[in-house]
Write a protein that binds this DNA or RNA. Structure first.
Lengths: 177, 177
DNA sequence: AGCAAAACGACACGGCCCGTGCCGTGCCAT
DNA sequence: ATGGCACGGCACGGGCCGTGTCGTTTTGCT
């Protein structure tokens, strides 16, 4: 996995090959194939083996501040080479390989979502969030624009952008009374 | 391009090869390489050559209804085989090939965004949308959750989901007064 | 301590596709 | 009539895939 990450950083995910990983690791190809059945799975495991411990949400009592803090951390991580491009490549691979997509969801996306929803639920119970909102939906509206910018438009994600998403979500779009 | 689309539907984008396209089209490989420098570019042109005419927004005076109508159409198109998987493959390729990403943005994403923003601007001038909102941001908050669901969680996108996103966006998350 | 099974590194193989040469042909504009 | 040019066809070296076969090392069990 270390060889895979090193090579991915050096030549990019596209040119990453299982053969290359085996050579770099000083290992037979069989040994790689015995554990992973595709380059995508190998890369997924390699990436998730780092930054693995999902950051816990603080609960300072201010849901907006806590969300902002957490999203800042994620955005900063993606802005720190080489994590942005590597995570992007992983999501790209997930579009082609359903097995990678499923694993990524189960092992990373879903746990992250659940942590966020848990924090939101606490806020909801404190009255900071309207009780009739589906918190999974709120999660999507938070993550969605960031992923959209990250994967589709590819503009850099700034703290200011995060602030504006949060602001819009908590304010609503309709005309101010 | 027709050969590329046919093959993509038959064997999937991953197994699509320029060589295969050339054979299917009854054409020399050079003839393909003369026009496209990568499988991704070829596929992009092939896909965009269909469904090309961007649907125009209606302006019935009700911004929420118009948005809903438009998003329904897009979601329904993605739900009609084989467009969903093909568009997904294109977005996956865009994660690996910057040239594809740039072309996709310039030729599809940006025009779509501009149409939506134009419609939103009209609504803003009519007082249906708060004047201090950045309309590009609104666009992101609309598209983001849908793309997130489409690319990341891969759950089917229902009309009900669209409604909930719209509702949340226009209502705001905070406690009801 | 001893032994069998499993995993290992190394090497070789056929197969697919890449991207690029090099033919000879037919069409077109000069 | 002639030159240029895009074409279809074919062949090539090269990279990587996934698998098979060696002989060796490590592991787990008794």
């Amino acid at each position: 996995m270390r060889a895979a990450l090193d090579l991915a950083r050096e030549v990019g995910y596209v040119k990453l090959s299982i053969e290359g990983v085996a050579v770099r690791a000083g290992v037979g190809k069989h040994t790689v194939y015995r554990r992973w059945d595709s380059k995508g799975q190998l890369f997924l495991d390699s990436l998730l083996s780092l930054n693995g411990p999902v950051l816990d949400y603080r609960d300072t009592g201010d849901i907006k501040a806590d969300l902002r803090r957490q999203i800042y951390a994620a955005v900063d991580l993606l802005g720190t080479p080489p994590w942005g491009p590597l995570y992007q490549a992983l999501l790209g691979e997930a579009q082609h390989d359903p097995a990678v997509s499923v694993s990524l969801n189960e092992r990373f996306i879903r746990p992250q979502t659940e942590k966020t929803v848990a924090r939101l639920r606490a806020a909801q119970e404190q009255g900071q969030v309207s009780p009739d909102f589906d918190l999974d939906l709120v999660m999507s509206i938070l993550s969605g624009p960031l992923y959209f910018q990250f994967l589709v438009t590819r503009e850099p994600i700034t703290h200011a952008y995060v602030d504006r998403v949060l602001e819009a979500l908590f304010t609503g779009l309709g005309p101010r009374p």
